[in-house]
Design a protein around this nucleic acid. Structure first.
Length: 491
RNA sequence: CGAGGUGUAGCGCAGUUGGUAGCGUACCUGGUUUGGGACCAGGGGGUCGUCAGUUCGAGCCUGGCCACCUCGACCA
């Protein structure tokens, strides 16, 4: 078979790459570290984007668009911010090419050097806060609730399809508020939007928490995050929501007059999720036969494979299946009828399993006689023969069952892989055994976190929100601790 | 960027002491098929990653570069 994929057991990384390439989600490109998102992968992203976009609008946000380029000087205005991003910025230095006088094709025209270099945005805080300065004068202009769907560039040394690419698609919300409490409430609200999306649509359980100082976003006062666990025991940061305090307002001099006619600095948040979520989705549910997609996001939710010998038979099947398709479409279910005659049914079965289509229907002469159809679900590989009568309702129900089932399965896996450890030995043993989230006491210092990272590669993924308070001792330093934090090796 | 590995048809690979490139699959045509990746026959498709060197002659030898993979370093 031309499309066999490496098993997870054999080589987890290769399995992931095989899935991305062979399911037709993305491809490598001519540009280092950049990928081509293929139609099937982009359809998945569109579905994710549409759901999130609605959630953003339902919480009062509006979309806008800011430039791809940022004047270099903007990046030097917030010290921590530039510290975090300087090492991975693409820089535009010239604006024109010309023919090489020595005949070597085109070269950069040395006379077309930019007065000030432009940075390809790694994130848009700086250009947006520069803009906000002119938009915000009074408390009446607040809150300002803006989201942008965009591409950004971070010149990563080592990339992985969807999980870390040099250019990626994302959304970035940037909000401005009159008070600290309101900005914090916004930060938490958006974290909840992300968590709900991850769990209800991606069927991927996440842990909500805050980052330690080491892991915090460059320029943030507090970084909230959702952390998910992948099947290989590594953690993946799936989304972040930052409370930026007044750092950017002060750096870009954004002030407003309050009701008492006094100048105050604006309070800020930013929050984002990216095409990395597709990587998370793949690793959360898929198996050695291919993708397993949650019905709510699957580009194709139900695929119908006719089994026929002649055009007459195909037509007869189509006649029979057309009302069902209409009914499914009326219910908003994405259905595909694959009547291609150059692939065998067996090939199609394997192909749609590879692509993670949640429900497959096979229908042939036998079914026409009996008034039935063979229904197969991707998550359990279960097949059943069902009556055509009332099938649309059953399929609708089945899709929600599948959605629920893969969430429960992922949840069970995640919960089984949260291990409480009380000594550094236990910690290292558990980490080597199967990874996962290690709930351990920590003395709260960056030094300890750094040392554990150097020795084990594990980092503190988050301090869970509403964390249980309990007396304990730091597994590394033995100093007193009031709560456990979650360590893991991360992507 | 460091260490290791790989690069030959869309994909997966073979290619002997250096002698002018092949297999499987995919693709095209015709026919037979179709309930788990069909079969037969015929056909098209290659600057052998790239640049240079050695040689009468390079897929094969030498060097530089590029891309990808794994592990580091780096990373919201």
């Amino acid at each position: 078979m031309s499309k066999e994929i490496t098993s997870r057991e054999q080589d987890y990384s290769q399995w992931y790459i095989d899935l991305v390439l062979k399911a037709g989600l993305a491809d490598y490109s001519a540009v280092k570290g950049c990928m081509v998102i293929k139609p099937y992968g982009y359809a998945l992203w569109e579905n994710m984007r549409d759901v999130l976009d609605k959630k953003f609008k339902d919480t009062g946000h509006q979309n806008a668009y800011f430039p791809l380029f940022i004047p270099k000087s903007f990046l030097s205005k917030e010290a921590a911010h530039i510290e975090g991003f300087a090492k991975e910025c693409a820089v535009v230095t010239h604006y024109r090419l010309k023919n090489d006088p020595n005949g070597g094709g085109v070269i950069v025209d040395p006379e077309a050097k930019l007065e000030e270099e432009l940075i390809v945005r790694p994130t848009s805080e700086t250009i947006i806060w520069h803009t906000y300065k002119s938009w915000i004068k009074s408390y009446r202009d607040l809150p300002l609730l803006i989201n942008q769907w965009a591409n950004v560039v971070r010149w990563e040394m080592r990339t992985r399809l969807f999980l870390r690419t040099a250019e990626f698609l994302w959304q970035e919300g940037h909000t401005a508020h009159a008070t600290e409490q309101e900005a914090i409430a916004e930060t938490e609200q958006m974290l909840n939007v992300y968590a709900d999306f991850a769990e209800q649509y991606m069927a991927m359980p996440v842990i909500k928490g805050v980052k330690t100082a080491n892991e915090r976003f460059a320029g943030a006062v507090e970084t909230y995050c959702i952390e998910a666990l992948m099947q290989d025991g590594k953690a993946l940061q799936a989304g972040t929501s930052h409370f930026l305090g007044q750092n950017f307002a002060k750096a870009f001099d954004v002030t407003f007059l309050n009701k008492e006619n006094k100048q105050e600095s604006v309070w800020a948040t930013s929050w984002g999720v990216s095409t990395r979520l597709i990587g998370a989705l793949i690793m959360a549910h898929s198996d050695d036969d291919g993708l397993v997609l949650p019905p709510k996001l699957a580009p194709i939710q139900v695929v119908i494979v006719p089994i026929f010998k002649t055009v007459e038979q195909l037509n007869a099947i189509f006649e029979k299946i057309k009302p069902l398709m209409d009914e499914l479409k009326a219910k908003g279910i994405r259905v595909k009828f694959d009547d291609g005659d150059n692939k065998s049914p067996g090939w199609k079965f394997a192909e749609y399993e590879m692509k993670g289509v949640p429900v497959r229907i096979a229908i042939g002469a036998r079914d026409l006689e009996n008034g039935t159809a063979e229904v197969a679900r991707r998550d359990t590989k279960e097949k059943m023969s069902l009556q055509m009568l009332g099938l649309a309702e059953k399929l609708e129900h089945l899709l929600s069952q599948i959605q629920d089932n893969i969430f429960q399965k992922a949840l069970q896996f995640r919960d089984e892989n949260i291990v409480h450890v009380d000594t550094y030995d236990e910690f290292k043993k558990a980490l080597n055994a199967k990874g996962g989230f290690l709930a351990a006491h920590w003395d709260g210092t960056s030094e300890t976190e750094e040392k554990i990272k150097q020795e084990t590669k594990a980092t503190i993924r988050c301090i869970p929100l509403n964390n249980k308070q309990e007396e304990g001792k730091c597994i590394y330093s033995g100093k007193p601790s009031r709560q456990r934090v979650l360590f893991a090796v991360a992507y």
